[in-house]
Simulated assay, not measured.
Amino acid sequence: MSDLYIGLMSGTSLDGVDAVLADFGGSHPRVIGHSSAALPPALKTELLALNAPSDNELHRAALAANALVRVYAEQVQSVLRQCRLSTSAIRAVGAHGQTVRHRPQEFDGTGYSLQLNNPALLAELCSIDVVADFRSRDVAAGGQGAPLVPPFHQAFFGRTDQVVAVLNIGGISNLTVLDPAATDLYGFDCGPGNALMDAWCLTHTGQPYDDGGRWAAQGQIHGALLKRLLDEPFFAKTPPKSTGRDLFNMPWLKAALAQTGPLASADVQTTLTELTAQVCATSVQQTSAHCKTLIVCGGGALNTHLMERLQKALPTCQVASSAEFGLPPLQVEACAFAWLARQMITGKTGSVQSVTGARGARILGAIYPAQAR
């Protein structure tokens, strides 16, 4: 049976959809195709709006999920054309969906993590089995439901001779510590990644992100604002922990700005970039002091200024893009969900108790067959 899987990811940063076609038939995962597309502006706006309470949410969320899945389906077809493969060559598609709320363990003790998706429609459009709903089982087992990528990081980037850390900087940042001497895998959300920087950049420049961090490089770090942002209690929490736009959003930033007085917009961007660099660097220092290599993936790896600030904060550690280790930054998460789909199809667990804090490892996801069996 085929060991080819497609992974689909549209992350918290809302910068687009990535599709990866991965071959798991060898001793090491291998990406053989990648396709990406920006989200249509109206869909991106709607998905962002659905991160907060609003009118007629259920109706709008259902239609947004349908629209997102149509973008997913286009990317599945794109990567198949690129690799000159038919749908029958693919064992399954792993479709994460778009996170709009992430509140594990809250309200009733269980909480929830909600990803907009319509895997049944995706299975109809693609004629391939679809695996989706990866987070809810871990949340049901008392876990955070995030991060889910550390086991894949271990499979792809782990080494037997040294401690390696993997830092994913999407909308939210998360860290994986790969210590060959450790009994348990360790990983958690650090805090904001690109979400605040992107939102501020869009508001003040009209651009969806700070390309290469060039705007941030022109400003100055505002010490009082940075200190106020770093006072956020989430940063002092002990893992397992996860977060999202439910916490790190524009109202959160504006509440801090209200206490500091008027600031130049470029200085705020510089300070937000420093915030991400500091919370990520502190996470590395606190959990993997012997780490010699920090592999950075996600859109943040393309932000030159942010990478320079990370390197300055971690002078004894090599800070490098995941591209230098065999997997470009924008392919890592999509490949991880291809891997998680394979774990589910083959009946293997995808979560790790030491990462999410659940009562145990669980098989993650539900399958939507392409057709009746």
Rank of each mutant, 00 (worst) to 15 (best):
D3Q: 15
T12H: 05
L14D: 13
L14V: 12
D15F: 01
H34Y: 11
S36C: 00
L43P: 06
T45Q: 05
E46P: 07
N51S: 02
A64L: 05
A73W: 02
E74V: 08
E74N: 09
E74L: 00
Q77I: 03
R81C: 11
Q82I: 14
I90W: 03
A95W: 07
R103Q: 02
P104M: 02
E106Q: 13
D108W: 12
G109S: 08
T110P: 01
G111V: 07
A120E: 03
D133L: 07
S136R: 15
S136E: 08
A141V: 03
G143H: 09
G143A: 07
A146P: 08
P150R: 09
Q154F: 08
R159G: 10
D161S: 07
Q162P: 05
A165P: 08
L167M: 13
I169L: 00
D179Q: 05
D184Q: 13
D184T: 06
Y186I: 15
G187R: 03
P192V: 00
M197C: 09
T203A: 15
T203I: 12
G206K: 00
G206T: 12
G212M: 10
L230H: 04
D231H: 06
S242R: 05
G244H: 13
W252K: 06
K254Q: 15
A256P: 03
L257V: 04
T260P: 04
D267K: 04
D267H: 07
L272F: 02
T273I: 03
L275M: 08
Q278P: 00
T282C: 12
S283A: 15
V284K: 11
Q286V: 01
Q286F: 14
H290L: 14
L294C: 11
T304L: 14
K312P: 06
A313M: 10
C317L: 09
V319F: 06
A323G: 03
L327F: 01
L327W: 09
Q331P: 08
A338K: 02
R342P: 07
V355C: 03
V355H: 05
V355D: 10
T356P: 00
R359V: 04
A361L: 00
L364A: 03
I367V: 15
A370G: 06
Q371H: 14
